[in-house]
Every structure is written in structure tokens, then in C-alpha cells.
Design a protein around this nucleic acid. Sequence first.
DNA 1: TTCTCCATAGTAAACGCTTACTATTTCTAG
DNA 2: CTAGAAATAGTAAGCGTTTACTATGGAGAA
Lengths: 364, 364
Amino acid sequence: MTEKSSPTDPIHARGGSGATIADVAQAAGVSVATVSRALSGNYPVAKATRERIFRSVTDLGYVANAHARALAGATTRTVGIIINDVADPFFAYIARGVERQASAEGRMCLITATHGDKERELALVDLMREQRTDAVILVGGASDDPRYRKQMADRARALDAAGSSLVLCGRPSLGAGVPTKMVTYDNEGGAFAITDYLISQGHRRILYVGGPRDFSTTASRLSGFYRALDARGIERDPALVHEGAFGRGFGYSRMRELLDQEVDFTAVFGANDLVAAGILEALEERGIRVPQDVSVVGYDDVPVASELRPRLTTVRVPLEELGREAVRLALSQSPHDAGASSDNTLTVGTHIVIRDSVSPPNKP
Amino acid sequence: MTEKSSPTDPIHARGGSGATIADVAQAAGVSVATVSRALSGNYPVAKATRERIFRSVTDLGYVANAHARALAGATTRTVGIIINDVADPFFAYIARGVERQASAEGRMCLITATHGDKERELALVDLMREQRTDAVILVGGASDDPRYRKQMADRARALDAAGSSLVLCGRPSLGAGVPTKMVTYDNEGGAFAITDYLISQGHRRILYVGGPRDFSTTASRLSGFYRALDARGIERDPALVHEGAFGRGFGYSRMRELLDQEVDFTAVFGANDLVAAGILEALEERGIRVPQDVSVVGYDDVPVASELRPRLTTVRVPLEELGREAVRLALSQSPHDAGASSDNTLTVGTHIVIRDSVSPPNKP
DNA sequence: TTCTCCATAGTAAACGCTTACTATTTCTAG
DNA sequence: CTAGAAATAGTAAGCGTTTACTATGGAGAA
């Protein structure tokens, strides 16, 4: 189809880089403008002409050059999403939501990963700005380094000036007056709820493990955790709080250390499900039964939570939904948050899902 | 920084779409060409001039327009990858490999998902062609519909003619003479090995569950499965082969049906780890112990395999590696496979990893 | 019949960048 | 000293689209 030469001819390469609109125009015996109009369909073209053009298009295997098109003013129809890691289910599910909503709205989706590097994150925002994406969605917790904040705020303003928008997904605002849109989930509330659940089961000494220090996600979860403790009049014990990382490996190794130190606790709150999985592994290795001897909870309700044995009691975050909303908001025409208001912040709820990893403590 | 106006001024939007290279040139008092050269650094520019230019760049928050750049001839520095689903770990890990290698080679990565729709897959290839990506990587098994094959072959030729390349990752060739590059893993060999392992443990009646029918991945796995059976002189029993889908849900429901029908078997080969997870769940629900009563194996060695209890014995596929290799191959200058040869097909090995889900059968 | 108005089609000017050429200095060597 | 080679800068021609403007030929109105 595409080639006129024999399909078995190994030297069929035309050497060029595909047909241009001019080739199509020539083949159809019309002007470039007419082809462009026939293709975009926003201007009348005689039926016979149109058909001739479409025939040439298929004959030549023509596809428009997206760059030329973008340059000439049409929008790029692309949204960019920046996440930590494609293979981390937390991000993968958000990305899936973004991807699906974007394609539902006829957009392509440019997914990139920072691997936790702040500098890289800033660079990626610039890269997307270069690409002139319709929006860039920044996913996941953020560092609270003020210098970083300022730099990102600059990017937000630049994006805004270019008619694009920066959507913060599950991360705190860059400050009043910075033109961004936000989609978040009730992080603090979920942490409160599940901690309260643990307490209601009779637990008093609850270990908190995981999550990078000075990281917004950690801060919110910890804050919900503390609020629940306070509400029940349970003293905060710094010895029970162990920040670090979000991976399974961290949960495993820190739990082992804690077990070695014979810290006194009856339940563990893993900063996310992956950390909880590591915790479970360490516990299992030492022959400590869950939930009989120790109760464990996680956060996120990523599929692995129900794969674990015992099935993990955790906090459900509507990840995919979050991604979809981010795109909806990004593409909506609502003005950015250029003030104290308003309508471009959206918070989705979280709720705990009770499975098999919690029971009342053994020794009350 | 970016804006001259007060940062608290809500009406700071310049309305435009950011500074252009001409603005920078004017601000620095030089010509556009000089700015371009200073930025790309492939042509000498006096130190003082260069510094002045860079100052203007930061002052104006200038970032180049990637489209203009691409249009003017520079490469897009982007590779596209097409997968089924971002949230499926099999694809997510391959995507991670692609993403990492791409960024190691200074490329952006355009990730898109087909959600199993063949038409959409073809459309996405066209979309990437529009974007003029340096390469497009097509991941995962393919349908063996001849019409589809032909259409994809056309795309491959078009891409090739445009100086890009189509990389088939873990899927069969489009036929001799079609210009593609290929990265695969030893799918059939892995299936053979793990089936043989099951047989060596004494199993004779092995159930095969999962994987879409008429799908290349299923075909290879099944073929390895059969070869192992044949090699040991075990009769193939069609009643033991149950194709269907790759999801956890399919494994669960089909296993339940099979249990209801009281099919006679001592081991189950799940077409992938997710299917195996579903199988395990169904078995657990019925109180059937694994591996004492029934042995189970999976395929892929995705993280969930070691999360399951019992830990799943499975076939390790170097997913991330696969993705990296795909990018390496894509970006290497080696000519495409325009003939029977050659060097642009790469196969990575697979091997079984033995964990806790297999033991000799109860009743031999 | 003449004039106005559509329906179509063509012309050509952007869009923002890269780069082949050309032009000016400033060295370096003979 | 002067010819020729750097080193540095500018000019301008694309790259492939889109789209405002212009042109042409009927059809219906007056």
C-alpha cells in the first residue's frame, strides 16, 4: 500500500522522510491549502475534490507532521505527566487514569519519570514546556525545600503564561498566587481513620514506619496519625516513629532492626502498602503471627494489599480516579488559581478497607 | 524571575506563549543565529557574548520550542512505546526499562496504552509517526490476524522510510522483508523448563490456564508446555488446556469452574503470575493446600510472585532489561532487518525461579 | 440582464528554529 | 608587512502546516 515498489524489493526505502502535504496536493492536483482544509474539515471542499485528496493520502501513506502543525498554531493535543517511577503501582494507577482520561479527550499522553530526583523533575517540566503540552501533571509528594518550591513556582508561571497549566496531583500548593490547579486526596484523613481504627481495636503502642522525611506525603500521613493519637489522649512517642523510604525493602530492613531492638509495640502502620509488605515479610521471618501477635496496616490499597497473607487492612486511595480528575481539571477552561479561591482545587476522599491484618492486641 | 511584573499581581499573564529565540536575541543584542549557536554549543561563540545570551535566557525564562526545533531538522529526541496497560506490572517493568534507557540516552519517552485494542494500536503507531519519534517500540504479544499483520507491516515500512524504526518487543516478526528490529525473550524455552520441572517432580496431569487464544505469547508458552510433555512421553490432553485471558480474574473464575467439574490434575501452570494469583485464591477458598495438594507455577516473575503465599515458583523474564535493550537496538545505527539476516534481533534468556508453590504430587 | 452572494480554490504570510553561506575581524606565519 | 587562516557574527533559506485574504465562477435577486 504504502510503497509503489514491490514489497519484496529490499531497496524500497525512498530515503525521504515520508510524504508531505505538498506531495498530496500535487498528487491530487490541488493546492496545499485545499488539502489542509479537506483534512481538518473546518472549511468547505467539494466532494469530488475531497475524495481525490483522501485517495492520494492513502496512496502515499501520508500522515501530518505534528510539529509543523503545532508550530503553525494548532494545539499539540498532548498532556504530560511526571511521576516518580512507572513500575511503582501507586504511580502506575494514577498514570493509568491520566492515560485513559487523556485518550477519552482525544489527547496523547507523555509519561516521564523522575526516579525521585528533584532536579530531574524541574528539567522534565521544562522539557514538557518545550513540547508545548496542553498541561503538565505533577504527581506525588514533594520535597519542602524552599528553593525548589520557588523554582517550581517559576515554572508554573511560565506554563501559565504560555496558556498551559500545571496540575499538582497529590501534593501541596506552591503558595498563594502561583497559578496551578490541584487534585488531591484526603491523605491526613485516611491516616487519621486507620490509626483511629487501630486504637479502637485496643492498640496503644503503634509503630509508624516509612516515608521519606521532609516529604509532603509523609508529613500528611504522620499528621493524621498524630491527630488520632491526640484525640484519644495517647502520648506521642518519638521512639515509635521511623521515617525513611517508601519501598518494600525499607519496611523489611527497618522492621528487622526494630525487632532486634525489642521495641515495645502491638501494631505497625506502614507508610504505604509496599512498606507494609516488607514489614509482613520481616515479621513472618521471625515467626511473629499477624494479626494475632502484631497488627499491621498499610496505605494506598494497591493490588498487592489483597495479595498479601494476611490480606492487608489499609486506606483506599482512588488512584485512577485521581488521574482522571487531574486531566479533566487540566483541560477544563476554568481559570487558574491566581488567588485565594477556588474551583480549581479538587479533593477526593479516602476510606479504610478492613481485611485480615488487624485484631485486638494480645497483651492489653 | 520569569516575570517582570510583581509576583502578586494577578494580571501578570503576558498573554503570549513565552519568549522566543528572537526575544532573547534582542535582549542580548545579537542575532538569532548566534543565540541558537550559543545554546546548542556546536559552533564557537565568544565567551562574553555567550554569557550575555545565557543571562537573557534566564531573565526571560526562555525554553526552545521543541516543535520548531524538530521542524527545522533537529531530531525529536523522543522514543515512543506502545503497551497494553500502564498498570499491568509486566508492561510497567518493560516501560521502566525503556524509560530509563531512553533517559540515559538523552531521550524523552512517549508512553501510550492500547488497552488491548488492535485498531487503537495501529492508530497509536500513526500518532507516533506524526510525532516523528526516533523509534516506536511495540510491546507484548500480538494477534495473528493476517489483515492486522499486513497493516502493521505497512506502518513498519513507512516508519523505515522516514528514518525511524519499529521495534517489536516480545512479539513475533511481521514477516521477512519487513523492516523491523526485534527484542524477545525465550518464551517457549521458559515454558518448557518450568513444565519439565513440574514433570521431574512427578506431575503427569498438568493444567494449563490462561492467555488469550490466537495470541502469540500464549502460542509460545503453550508450545514450550507441549514440547516438555512430548519429551517425557506424556500424552497431550486437550481437556487440560484452558486459554482465556491474562488477568487475575480469569485465573480465579476458571479455576473455580475446573474445581467444580472435578477435573483430575495435580499441578497448574498459570499463563502468567497474575493468572496464577487468581488460581491460588480459588484454591485457598476451597481449602486446597498448595503445594501439598496441588502445585502451581506462573510466568514472568513479576513482584507479586514473591508476595504470594506460598511464594510462587515461576519463570523469570528480565522485563526491565528487555525494555532497555529495545531502546539500545532502536537507537543503534544498525540497518533494519530488510532480509533474512541479522543483527537486529536480540533474544534474552529466561530461567525458572524455584520458590514454594511446587512439591511432588500427593497421589502418584 | 446586471449585480450580489455563495461555494470553492489558490496565494502567501506566519510559526520559531537550524544551518549553509557570507562578511568582518583578528591572528599567525612567512 | 601581508596573505591566509581562524574565530566570530550576521543573513536568509528552508522545515511542513494553518489560515487570513484574495480570486473565480456560477446562482439567484432585482
